[in-house]
């Protein structure tokens, strides 16, 4: 396996996903297969080749610093699963 179970566990944590043991097996094998496949890129000679920064030849796309009205708070919070006092509410954040 080119991707280990430990690595899959680690990236699941970074992705905030929980995996059952069965899923861990399955994803480890799936990711290994895909990564093996992607490893064909290591055969390509990329010395001196610049990574594509942008697909279009664009630069300096700016916006003027002019205020436009914001949205109604009701709209902003419309889809929130839990709200209180004009805010989205979440379980206590502990620092």
């Amino acid at each position: 396996m080119s991707v280990s179970k430990e690595e899959v566990k680690h990236i699941a944590v970074l992705s905030k996903l929980q995996l059952t043991d069965q899923e861990l097996e399955k994803y480890t094998s799936d990711l290994s297969n895909i990564v093996d496949f992607a490893n064909e890129l290591s055969n390509v000679d990329v010395d001196g080749t610049k990574p594509t920064a942008h697909i279009l030849d664009i630069k300096n796309v700016f916006r003027k610093d002019e205020v436009q009205p914001s949205y109604d708070r009701e709209e902003i919070l419309k889809n929130a699963p839990s709200k209180d006092a004009g805010c989205v509410s979440v379980p206590k954040v502990v620092e």
């Binding site: 205020v67 914001s70 708070r73 006092a85 004009g86 989205v88």
Partner: peptide, 24 residues
């Protein structure tokens, strides 16, 4: 101290009611 936020046209003014200087 720009007038608007970095990526949208909402005001940067301080001290308003929560979530009133917001857009999608």
């Amino acid at each position: 101290s720009t007038n608007t936020k970095i990526y949208c046209n909402c005001t940067t003014e301080f001290g308003a009611d929560p979530n009133t200087h917001c857009c999608p």
